[in-house]
Simulated assay, not measured.
Amino acid sequence: MNQPFAHTILLSDLDGTLIPRGGCVSEGNRAAVERFVAGGGRFGVATGRTPEAAGGYVSGLPIGAPSVFFNGAMLYDWAEKRVLAERPLPGGDAWPRFAERCLAKFPEACIEVYTATDCNIVSNPENDDPRLPHEYYRYRHVALEEVSDIAQTPWLKFFVRDTPEHLRQLEREAAEAGIPELAHGFYSEVEYYEFVAQGTSKGAMLEAIRTLPEYQGWRIIALGDERNDVEMLRNADIGICAGGARAEVRAAADVVGCPVEDDLVAWVLDHVLADEAVARH
């Protein structure tokens, strides 16, 4: 049986890469993923979302590779519904203190604390991110005190949605609070700023996949479109960005593909992997 994609993982970001923002997996991309898997490859996702949140978008896709969630704080076996690795935020009580500071300094922000099982919104419900009702996961509004026992329930990700101006101020507040010593802060979109543990990223978890016995010697092709995908694109054997990606993401990629609306996964199979197959023969 012809297996042109044997020993190859295709690891894809979701929003802006596999799916248009606010959209769903196209029939073209769905068919391309199925063709890739039928050809011996394994498909996985790499996202800032939780497994539950991603589930509604990727339902029915043949996900067989370890997948990355919480922007690198969790590596997850989708088929077995099993956590392979977690990287919680270090620093103990520093995080509830910083969250309290953010609530006071940014009264219009949506502030979310992610644990392994929950999205906990600790800010005023009036500030909720408009995306929340359209997502495929449960979230709950709680007082900060309910999630402050980090020793009992570790935080995997701390998230703030606010205006770009306020987020620039948030970066300064974080520096004053000593947060950069504990965490990697980054923009996942212009109004989204997130914190995960130092050394945690989609790219770091890509390297963790390489250490798994089952995937020794496998090639990893990564797809992304945003700044939180840069390290993953650089660490991949082939990093491919969507055509609409910003300049720094394009610079990190080996290949600039088509826009997400034009079925990027199908484009990769037809223009990158097909060319390789021709070259081998």
Rank of each mutant, 00 (worst) to 15 (best):
46 A>L: 04
52 E>M: 12
41 G>I: 07
183 A>H: 07
117 T>C: 11
171 E>V: 15
232 M>Q: 07
209 I>H: 05
160 V>A: 00
49 R>W: 10
270 D>W: 06
56 G>F: 04
277 A>Q: 15
247 A>G: 00
253 A>R: 01
147 V>Y: 10
243 G>W: 03
39 G>D: 03
181 E>K: 15
163 T>Q: 06
83 V>D: 07
6 A>R: 15
218 W>L: 06
177 A>Y: 00
167 L>M: 03
128 D>M: 14
52 E>Y: 00
200 T>A: 11
188 S>G: 09
188 S>N: 04
122 V>L: 08
90 P>D: 14
217 G>D: 08
254 D>R: 09
2 N>S: 13
16 G>N: 02
27 E>L: 13
179 I>D: 01
261 E>A: 15
77 D>R: 08
278 V>G: 05
236 A>F: 03
210 R>M: 09
193 Y>E: 06
255 V>L: 06
59 S>G: 11
241 C>P: 00
278 V>Q: 15
64 G>D: 03
74 M>S: 09
213 P>F: 03
206 L>D: 05
106 F>A: 14
23 G>M: 10
272 V>D: 05
106 F>R: 06
273 L>P: 05
195 F>R: 14
12 S>I: 01
204 A>M: 01
31 A>M: 08
263 D>M: 10
191 E>M: 13
1 M>Y: 02
129 D>R: 08
270 D>Q: 15
281 H>Y: 10
29 N>W: 11
58 V>I: 14
199 G>M: 04
201 S>C: 06
272 V>I: 13
140 R>K: 06
20 P>G: 04
75 L>C: 05
11 L>S: 10
161 R>P: 00
196 V>Y: 01
276 E>N: 07
37 V>S: 08
18 L>A: 12
162 D>Y: 01
227 R>I: 13
145 E>P: 05
126 E>Y: 08
84 L>M: 13
153 T>G: 02
208 A>T: 02
229 D>G: 03
142 V>Q: 09
5 F>T: 06
45 V>D: 09
137 Y>S: 15
169 Q>S: 10
10 L>T: 02
196 V>R: 07
123 S>F: 07
228 N>Y: 13
239 G>P: 00
153 T>Q: 12
224 G>N: 13
41 G>Y: 05
273 L>H: 02
250 R>D: 02
170 L>I: 12
50 T>Y: 01
14 L>A: 10
62 P>Y: 01
148 S>M: 09
87 R>Y: 00
249 V>Q: 04
223 L>V: 10
147 V>W: 08
99 A>R: 01
106 F>T: 10
120 N>S: 12
25 V>G: 00
157 K>F: 07
95 W>G: 07
98 F>T: 04
100 E>V: 02
30 R>A: 14
175 A>C: 12
277 A>I: 12
8 T>L: 11
237 D>A: 11
248 E>A: 07
141 H>K: 03
234 R>G: 04
51 P>K: 09
48 G>H: 12
194 E>T: 12
117 T>R: 14
244 G>Y: 06
112 E>I: 08
195 F>L: 14
26 S>K: 11
22 G>F: 04
58 V>L: 11
200 T>Q: 01
37 V>I: 12
145 E>V: 10
120 N>E: 11
171 E>Y: 05
96 P>C: 06
7 H>V: 03
268 V>Q: 04
220 I>C: 08
37 V>E: 03
106 F>D: 07
194 E>Y: 13
259 P>R: 06
34 E>N: 11
61 L>S: 12
42 R>E: 14
93 D>C: 02
155 W>K: 08
119 C>H: 02
149 D>Q: 11
140 R>C: 11
